[in-house]
Every structure is written in C-alpha cells, then in structure tokens.
Design a protein around this nucleic acid. Structure first.
Lengths: 195, 195
DNA sequence: TGTTTAACTGAACATCCGTTCAGAAAAAAG
DNA sequence: CTTTTTTCTGAACGGATGTTCAGTTAAACA
C-alpha cells in the first residue's frame, strides 16, 4: 500500500519542517531519528527524502529560515530616530520576535555545533550582521554622548545574551504580557548603557 | 590481551570524566558514543562500566559536580557588606568561575534536556538555589533604596543570562584579561539595577 | 476514458549504538 | 614465590541509525 488518501506534496513539505523543528527543539538534533520525524508526519521514513536531501539539510534549512526571517523583519522596521529610540525599538523587537518562536530560537542557539563547517559559516554570517546592527546603534549613541559603554562589541553581546535569555523562562500562561516583559527589559538595557 | 602495562583505576576514573566532558561539550551528549569516550581514554568501551553504571550517570555526575563546585566556591566567599558590594562580588565571581571551566558550563546549560526527569530535578534545584542568592542581593538593595528593578526575579535571570553569555565569546588568547572583562560587565550590571 | 506523473510504502543496506560478560593479565597481598 | 583481587579485553547481544530504491497507488492530465 502506498500513498494513502489525502496526501499531498504541498501539505507534507511544511509538515516535515514543523515536525523536525518541534522534535529538534525538544530532544536535540542528534537524538531525533528520521523515523521519528516521519511518524510525527504520518509517513514512512523514506518519504522524507522527497523534501530534504538529508538530515543535515533539514537542520540547516530550519536555521537559515529563522535567521532570514529575523533579518527580514528587522529590515522592514524603519530605523529612524536617535540612538536611544532605535535601541528601544531593537530591544522590543528582539524580545517580541524571539518569544513568538521559542522552538526556532532554541534550535538555532543549541544546534550550531551540529552544522557542517560550511553551513555553520553561513549561519554565523547572518548572526553577525544582526549583531552588527545593534553595535551600530551603540556606537552612534556613544558618539552622540547618549551612551557610555567601555566596549561596544562586548556591550552588544551582553545585551543580546540578556534579551535572548527571556526565552528560557517566559511562558504565555504566565503573569506578564509580552509588552510588559519588553518594558522591564528595556528599562534594564537603557540604564546599562546610559551615559 | 587484557590490562596493558601502566593502567590504574586511580588515573582511569578521572580520565573518563575528562574525556566525557570534553566530548560532550564539543559534540553534544547524544552525538558522543561510549566507544568514542573509551578511545579518548585509550581503553575498550566495556572498561568504562567500571567507572559509571551507564551513559546517563556520566552526564549527571558531570553536571552535579559542576553545580556542587559552583555552590561550594560561592559559599566559601564571605558575603559581607551592603547590597552593592555583594552584587559586585557576585558578578566578578560568576564571570571568573564560568570562564575557568568553559566545557562544564557548556554541558550544564545545553544538556539539561538529556537528563532523566529525576536527575533534571536535582540539577534544577541546585541552579535555583544559586539564583536565589542573587535575587536576595537584589531584594536587599531594593529595600535599602540602592537598586531599582521592576521585578527582582526577572532581573536575576536577566543578569545571569548576560553574565553567562561571556563564555560564548571570551578566548584566553584575546585582548582582554578576565579582570578587565569582570570590570566591563560589572559596570553594566551596576547601572542596569541602579536606583 | 486511459495515460502519465508525483507521492509514498516497505524492505533492505551496512553500520553503529549502549550494555553485558567470560576470560585474560597485571598488580597487590600473603 | 603463590594466591587473590582489580582492571581490562574482545566478542557478542538485540536493536536503532541514515539512506536507497524497486514497486505500488492516487492524483493530474489528455
């Protein structure tokens, strides 16, 4: 028996990606088998190879998709105003974006070492360009006398680490809304780099 | 042929732990095989079971050892002074301790999901008690009017995330000494929670 | 309608996995 | 020296792994 009723390429493809993302986030890339992903989709393992050349590409495509979405949404926001308002925009955007896709964030931060060297270089480059935007804001603020940080590169990484950490504890059912969380973190970021 | 010359329990035991820690940090728990660890030690896979009941215990023992060392060294420091000086001590200690054991930090933060539920609960409890100490400092500072944070629990997690993030970029061969890094982070932490 | 095409099955491939254990050999004890 | 004990080997266990592929079936097309 092959190809049971109601199966279509257009729905199976995305479902493979969704199942892989969810499983990779919960168990880790190396601990998830192709048969497990296939079972989640409701298909035999061999059928997955209609949608991905191999397991490694499945991971890479998820990560690149996440980074592309991050940079695309970021580029869509207007970057006007002075350094302080741009930093607030960046802070709120980062929290909102990351809290909306906890699985993709988890996979993108935890599975870097499971990428092949070439794939790793691609993801690393995308991440770098995101960090560079924040560092540019900090540098502008320092030049304008609005910020005071000893080292803009370190401050960039410190701020991003602090903001991304929100994904480890935030739960939708919790007592705080995303906007409230944004405001609490913005308060700390603003003071941390203030002149 | 068995038991080649120069093999001793006293040296093999620690060597198993060291090899496991290094490999888990570089490849991840699930991606490392017992045969790989054994090869690193220079022994056959079966011999590992003289030193650990199973692979899961190997991971758990590494994590518990790390957390025990963290709490023990923390307890050894005198916790005198006002909230500001205690926070500075905590900040500098956290950075120094974590930069000294990058592999253990990496494993302890990345492999939590590979612990059995019971083992996870143990590690989580230890981590919680470490976080509680920082939250206590923040609460005291708020009560004394020295700090101003909207939510001490969130501020605790934000500060720890920021500080632990240092392990992702710091390299011993880099341009900054550990003490310089401590000072840069302390400057940001101090301002972030300041009244 | 019949024919083509895309999607999927089910079995197979070689290889690796964690773990066990009888037996061998070196070190320690007497 | 001989005996005991500890440490390790080497083979084996059942099962899981990623990936391939000939064959089957449902959908799309003519």
């Amino acid at each position: 028996m092959a190809r049971t009723a109601g199966s279509h390429s257009e729905t199976t493809g995305p479902r493979v990606q969704e199942a892989a993302l969810r499983l990779f986030a919960r168990q880790g890339f190396a601990a998830v088998s192709m048969r497990q992903i296939a079972a989640e989709v409701g298909v035999q393992a061999g059928a997955l190879y209609n949608y991905t050349p191999d397991k490694q590409s499945l991971l890479f495509d998820l990560m690149r998709g996440h980074m592309d979405a991050l940079l695309a949404e970021r580029a869509a926001r207007g970057a006007g105003g002075d350094a302080v308002s741009r930093l607030e925009e960046f802070t709120r955007f980062h929290i909102r974006f990351h809290l909306a896709r906890p699985d993709a964030v988890f996979v993108s931060y935890m599975e870097l070492r499971n990428l092949s060297p070439e794939n790793f270089a691609v993801i690393e480059g995308l991440r770098r360009s995101y960090e560079d935007e924040l560092e540019g804001i900090l540098r502008d603020g320092v030049a304008a006398g609005q910020f005071d940080v000893a080292d803009t590169k370190i401050a960039t990484l410190a701020v991003i680490a602090m903001l991304t950490g929100v994904t480890t504890w935030y739960r939708e059912a919790g007592r705080l809304s995303v906007t409230e969380v944004e405001t609490i973190y913005w308060d700390m970021v603003r003071k941390a780099v203030a002149a």
